[in-house]
Nucleic acid binder design. Structure first.
Length: 496
RNA sequence: GGCCCCUUCGUCUAGUGGUUAGGACGUCGGCCUCUCACGCCGGUAACACGGGUUCGAGUCCCGUAGGGGUCACCA
């Protein structure tokens, strides 16, 4: 049992990295790290028709963004076509595979016939399995096209113990002689995959349950090629609320890892969320550091049943699974503020709100701003949307704040400038002084302090909620505070 | 349709014959308060169904229903 742990993540580059693929990658990565093994990244680009450069880049970028590092590769499957053919030839030469000259039309006809006869078994009937040598020679002489089929043992049983599902087995006679090489000479996925895994000395194959039915046929190939059979673990799939498999086609960007990057997710938070879909540590923990997760991960605790990605299209409150957002919010509030500040910098730069001073003179102010705001935010995007007023003068006052906290009290046209005047009269605005000023003013006017204070929040931050306003009077630049309070007249004019 | 897999709160899940069926997210209520989707406290909510086995079943067995996967010269 001291065999080296070698696992692989073999995406086919026909789209972006989606969360289902990411989950598989995460499981493999964690397993490799847990056991001091190696993770191999292998791009299965055999399907040249559908494989694209952008897709390869997208997958690699996604892996890197998530922080999933690999030890070997990326290898490209197309670089090993010679090996795939050699393997097929070996099987042919040793009588474990044979040439099948049946045409597609013939096979289709047989299939139809079997279906109409309501036969349960509609697989290949083994027509070419035992062709006479002369017959084969004759077909070859006339250059008749052929595929290579694997000769499934006529009796016995194939089986294995799945790390997730337990024992899986089937009698061989229920498995048809499957094609391993196309008539154009190109080996098929089933074969390539096995040949690659043997060459890469893969010890554990951790993949989605959609590959379950490939497994038995692949085991037959391992045996025929005299290679040790790896350990298999088939992870449950991730479905949508309607229990349909998530896919780019039907769900769009919401299932792309890149979507989360672009919407202010913290990479590790997404990893943390995804790993919880179909796995748990056996105790109540849900938030893990990288080290903790590696330590806790095991194939044995992967669930058998599919999980649902709880995303409702058009939900005004949650743009993706609420738990994912919650976990992201947790990391946003608890990570070192410098780390968050660095991520927010990217967002600010993207939106043209970044000032070099935030890395210089105003660094303290910048960090304080991040720290104040993050208590109520969920993504790093929130800083440039909900938090825009902290970084720019041209921000919108949200409708709710305007109506409820400003327009409702027309006298604010007088009160807010009064508040500004009194703040201006203090030589330095501190939270304590600001509070005293606000209380004093409210008392004199015989109004609740909340009225001018919340109106000030709307005018200064554009929002109906946020950090303590007294803190903010002191935090914002003095001129900004006064200027924004004195805008109240124009706000009323604009609204009338 | 054949074969395979699965089935605990709305969602993610704990649970390996005896539990008031636990936690998290969501949701609802309260507290805090200048506001708030922070925080804290509390509530709501689940064993798909039917038969067995057993003193006793979410846990074991069988069946039914439902869901998923897969049945290519795609990967």
């Amino acid at each position: 049992m001291n065999k080296e742990v070698r696992v692989r993540f073999p995406p086919s580059p026909t789209g972006y990295l989606h969360i289902g693929g990411a989950r598989t990658a995460i499981a493999n990565w964690l397993f490799a790290r847990r056991h001091g093994g190696k993770l191999i990244l292998r791009i299965e680009d055999t399907d040249a028709e559908r494989s694209t450069k952008e897709s390869i880049k997208g997958i690699i970028d996604g892996m890197k963004w998530l922080g999933l590092d690999w030890d070997e590769g990326p290898y490209f499957q197309t670089a090993f076509t010679a090996a795939h053919r050699t393997a097929a030839e070996r099987l042919l030469a040793s009588g474990k595979a044979y040439k099948c000259f049946c045409t597609r039309e013939e096979l289709e006809a047989k299939r139809e016939a079997a279906l109409t006869a309501k036969q349960t078994h509609v697989g290949y009937d083994g027509h070419c399995r035992d062709l006479a040598q002369e017959q084969i020679a004759a077909f070859e002489a006339e250059n008749r096209p052929f595929v290579v089929r694997f000769k499934v043992p006529p009796e016995g049983e194939v089986g294995y113990v799945d790390k997730v599902l337990g024992r899986i087995a089937r009698p061989c006679n229920e498995i048809e002689d499957f094609v391993i090489v196309r008539s154009n000479g190109k080996p098929l996925y089933l074969l390539c995959n096995v040949v690659d895994d043997i060459r890469d000395r893969i010890s554990h194959i951790i993949r989605g349950q959609d590959h379950m039915t490939n497994t038995l046929r692949q085991i037959l190939l391992y045996q025929a090629l005299n290679a040790p059979v790896p350990v298999f673990a088939h992870m449950p799939l991730t479905l949508d609320l309607k229990k349909a498999k998530i896919s780019k086609r039907s769900h769009g960007e919401i299932v792309a890892v890149q979507f989360y990057r672009d919407h202010g997710f913290i990479p590790w938070a997404l990893v943390n969320f995804l790993v919880l879909l179909g796995w748990n540590p056996g105790d109540d923990r849900e938030i893990f550091s990288k080290e903790e997760l590696i330590e806790a991960f095991s194939l044995e605790r992967i669930n058998k049943s599919n999980s649902i990605f709880n995303y409702r299209q058009g939900d005004p409150k949650f743009f993706t699974d609420p738990k994912a957002i919650n976990i992201n919010g947790h990391y946003l509030r608890t990570m070192p503020v410098e780390d968050i500040a660095a991520m927010v910098k990217n967002e600010l730069v993207k939106d043209g709100l970044w000032h070099e001073a935030f890395d210089g003179d105003r660094k303290g102010w910048y960090l304080k701003t991040i720290d104040m705001l993050r208590e109520r935010f969920y993504t790093t995007r929130d800083f440039v949307t909900a938090g825009r007023a902290f970084f720019a003068d041209d921000f919108e006052i949200e409708e709710k704040a305007l109506k409820k906290n400003v327009l409702k009290h027309p006298d604010l046209v007088k009160w807010l400038p009064m508040l500004a005047d009194r703040l201006e009269a203090t030589n330095e605005i501190t939270p304590e002084k600001a509070e005293a000023v606000a209380r004093g003013l409210a008392e004199e006017l015989g109004i609740k302090m909340g009225i001018p204070v919340n109106a000030a929040r709307a005018l200064i931050t554009g929002r109906i909620k946020g950090p303590s306003m007294f803190e903010l009077f002191a935090h914002f630049d003095r001129d900004t505070v006064l200027k924004r309070l004195r805008r109240v007249g124009r706000i009323f004019e604009a609204a009338s």
